[in-house]
Nucleic acid binder design. Structure first.
Lengths: 132, 132
DNA sequence: CGGAATCCATGTCGATACTG
DNA sequence: CAGTATCGACATGGATTCCG
């Protein structure tokens, strides 16, 4: 990665609307399931129930909603094959693929800092519990 | 940036718990205000109402909760100066600073793709509206 | 199989009022 | 100034049922 960042940096940090839009975009992928879907679709296309199975804890409803929103944002394509039984395939679009990169960066950050965060939380909880 | 990624890539993509933890972490910063705070604190420390003013649309309550959670996660430090009037300063910790990097990458992605996403949404809405 | 629709529990958030 | 407390509106998300 390593986007030449000084120019965009200033923009992201200062523009009136940019901050809003950026955090909207982040809010969009922060919806608990979108990231999972991106990670799974990153390698290859998946069918509906295939996604459902691999994700594990998701309800049918939420997967449908998640995929709908992602489709609306242009992140995934939805391909219906009207056979019996019907078949619906989801794949990442170019935008979706390009989003997978920053997500991976964030994922790597999270992966590297899991323990430090857990420790910080434990310390904080200990600190505040003793007061109670 | 550009973390050597093949190793972590596999881990993030495949480990049973890793996916969960990662998306938890993303969910944490995806909470609508955390990113804003990080962007603002990235340059320098801020006081409570200073943050409130610069962020703009946030309620007192949400800023308090956001900062609390970030403090718990070890992302910010909270420094109380018991004067009159009281003064509380917030700064990013090392972890917080390191998180600012991936966030910036994501922000740059969002910044570059704002138009494409808006276009995709408009197209999608047009497509579905005409059916109704 | 893939989804839509309904119902219901919980969580999130803002406005307001009060405290040190 | 920097919170805390309480309330009610609203969104989110799960379980279930029905449909093509």
């Amino acid at each position: 990665m390593n986007v030449t960042d000084t120019a965009l940096d200033a923009a992201v940090a200062h523009r009136p609307g940019a901050c809003l839009k950026v955090s909207q975009a982040i809010g969009r992928i922060g919806d608990k399931w979108t990231v999972m879907v991106i990670v799974l679709l990153r390698r290859r296309g998946h069918r509906f129930n295939e996604l459902k199975r691999e994700i594990g804890g998701i309800s049918q409803r939420m997967l449908t909603l998640t995929l709908r929103n992602m489709e609306r944002d242009g992140l995934v394509t939805r391909t219906v094959t009207p056979s019996i039984p019907p078949r619906v395939d989801y794949e990442l679009t170019d935008i979706g693929q390009s989003l997978a990169e920053p997500v991976k960066v964030l994922g790597e950050w999270a992966f590297k800092n899991l323990e430090r965060i857990a420790a910080a939380q434990a310390a904080y909880d200990a600190r505040t519990d003793e007061k109670a």
